[in-house]
Amino acid sequence: MQTYGKLNKVDERYKLKFERAYAYSVEEVWGIVTNPKHFTQWYPFATGEMELRLGGKIYFDDGEGSTYEGVITELAPPHIFAFREIDDLLSIELKTEDDGCCLVFEHTFDDASMSTSVATGWHRCLDALGMIIEGSPVEWPDNAASLRKTYKETFNS
Rank of each mutant, 00 (worst) to 15 (best):
M50P: 05
K15G: 02
V104D: 06
F105H: 06
V26D: 06
E106D: 02
E139S: 10
E134Y: 09
D88E: 15
G5H: 10
M114T: 09
R124N: 12
D11Y: 11
W30D: 03
H123T: 14
P77S: 01
R84F: 10
Y14R: 03
A119Q: 09
F155G: 07
Y4K: 13
E85I: 00
S136Q: 15
E51L: 02
K149W: 05
G130Q: 05
V33A: 00
T120H: 07
W42C: 08
T47R: 00
F18L: 12
E64V: 04
Y59F: 06
G48F: 01
A144K: 12
L54S: 13
G135S: 15
T120R: 08
T154E: 13
T116H: 08
W30C: 01
F83V: 01
L129I: 02
W30S: 05
A144F: 13
T150S: 11
S113I: 02
L75Q: 06
E28N: 09
R124Q: 13
F39A: 03
D98W: 07
V33S: 03
K15T: 09
Q2N: 12
E27V: 09
K15H: 07
K95S: 07
E85G: 03
F81G: 01
D111P: 00
L147F: 15
A46M: 08
Y43E: 03
E134C: 08
E134F: 07
C101R: 02
D142L: 14
T116Q: 10
M1F: 13
V26I: 07
K152N: 11
P78Y: 02
K9Y: 02
E12S: 13
V29D: 05
F155K: 01
D111H: 08
E69G: 03
W122N: 08
A128S: 06
